[in-house]
Design a protein around this nucleic acid. Sequence first.
DNA 1: TTGCTTGACAAAAACCTTTTTGTCCAGCCC
DNA 2: GGGCTGGACAAAAAGGTTTTTGTCAAGCAA
Lengths: 342, 342
Amino acid sequence: MSIVLLAKNLGLSISTVSRALNGYEDVSAATRERVVLRAKAIGYRPNPSARRLGAGKTLAIGVILPATGSTGQAVDSMYSSLLGGVVTEIEPAGYHLMASMQAKHDAARETALFENFIRGGWVDGLLIVRTRVHDARLELARAAKTPFVTYGRTESDQPYAWVDTDNEKAFHLATTRLLDLGHRRIALVNGPEEYSFAQFRRRGYVRALASRKLKPDPTWMLHGDLTERAGHELCRSLLIRRPAPTAFVCATDSMAFGAIAACREASLSIGSDVSVIGYGNSSLSAFCDPPLTTMEHQVFENGRYVGRALLQLLRKEIQPADVHYLEPVVLVPRKSDGPAPQ
Amino acid sequence: MSIVLLAKNLGLSISTVSRALNGYEDVSAATRERVVLRAKAIGYRPNPSARRLGAGKTLAIGVILPATGSTGQAVDSMYSSLLGGVVTEIEPAGYHLMASMQAKHDAARETALFENFIRGGWVDGLLIVRTRVHDARLELARAAKTPFVTYGRTESDQPYAWVDTDNEKAFHLATTRLLDLGHRRIALVNGPEEYSFAQFRRRGYVRALASRKLKPDPTWMLHGDLTERAGHELCRSLLIRRPAPTAFVCATDSMAFGAIAACREASLSIGSDVSVIGYGNSSLSAFCDPPLTTMEHQVFENGRYVGRALLQLLRKEIQPADVHYLEPVVLVPRKSDGPAPQ
DNA sequence: TTGCTTGACAAAAACCTTTTTGTCCAGCCC
DNA sequence: GGGCTGGACAAAAAGGTTTTTGTCAAGCAA
């Protein structure tokens, strides 16, 4: 059921049918309606491949998800929500999501995948997630003139479109809360240093300490994978020091659960002997014991923002510099933190 | 950098260049090598859109992920691993993954998405996940002559390609373990009845009870979403009965965590007063308190199997009936279960 | 020599749109 | 009446491959 048949069926030319369906102005309202109705009636759907070739657009947005976990085979569930938001916005506009995955710490493959996506002409736009402090992907995308939005900021001398959560504010908030509870020995169980979110979080933590005239101790600011395992090990390594920390601010809920496990092994009571704050408000955080004090942000809504921004960039309605959305974060107080032990 | 330029550059015809790059036999080895080398040298990449139109293939595999969670915005993290496995296999073959998402309980949208994917010619093959007992998607895919592999089985009068975990065996195993520990009042905290995996799990549970001459009580076989919240509520509703269950077999680790929370609220000690077994061996299950006894299966590897099967189906090397892979499941004993209280 | 096969390459068709350019006619102004 | 404008549609080009069909010379048998 090609456009040729539809045109023949209507007694019109191919071009008129095409223009009618694509909303051009140089086709009369009566004709347009006739075309649209008949197309629907006989179930005509334009062939995406031909449409892509003809229009020079792929109608696809590319995203490469970073695999994490000890086996390098899992994906942070946060990205599911993010992509859900993106899809919600782009699908009504006829765009689809082309997803790939990238093993952990495999820079060569990462670049190859990226090159393939953008230079190979697979996608019209890109979503770049888990930005690094210095992120080569931006240069690649720019060189290929492929519009993109990053989820997370990075250091760049040129304007770029980004959506991010206020990591610095979040960790300032969490650390301040612990300070207010009387804690003075607060450890930071952070994500990998290379990622910019980790830098922002550290900055928030340091700023909060500094505002109380406390000097941050670098040996209490540790980095690791965003996993329970890493949280567990980092926390354990901190707990054997003397004096030991009385509180932990963790980069993710997963890390916090690992940290809690380590505290428990050290026979510390969570929420009284030691305080732990997570990040992400995972579905589990309300049901664990004790319920986890954590930071919530609206990942799905951020995804929608990203999707809208991508569409507008593709339509050249806005410039990359116009997309700077910093989402506020709220603290969800539960029971995993409490007054510092005296 | 089109194939025209490359051909001109080589002094060959377009067709010879195309056939050389695509491994046809009617081009001499010397010429082929020359073409491949030059293509690499000048960075020629075939335009995917043109290739798709020319060959009548999209080089894409479609998958529609089921959104879950109370907000309907999250995706079971299991699918990340599954898709990781799929991507690992199909990308070297030049295929990409086109992903969409589907809100919970939105049958109309589900069908529309599916129709669009297959009738609209967006993909060459499909991965159908979270199969229902009666699943209309199979008919749609068959009608459109789109090859597909299901993850999970379903009731169908025609052969179809499926990959599944041995849910029945898994729950037989878990239930038997609890029976061996002396439990007699074992509740099943299952997923939504419409999904076939829930049926298999119930069957395994029932079979295990029957093999000990125990009559399964339907009011102890509950269904709910695969979330902590649902696990929590279902378990709570069971605990207020008299006599109350002494053990819970749960459809996912998430449900198990919810169940554990409910038990704790009832002041029951997990692993002694009451036993809980999960499913999935989530990364958290080893770090919670007590560590969760659960069932492990190799989702990533299953994804690889799915990917390979899809490629072979697309190449018509095998028939759907040749793809019947039932993955065994292993129990990971930890501390959330123990001897029945007397 | 003729006719057939085969190997290696080339020409052209096909894939199905979108976009650009062209046509034609009615209406209008001077 | 000549020339211009604009509305509505049509013709043709463009997009870059793959696939089908065609060509031509070399090799070989009868």
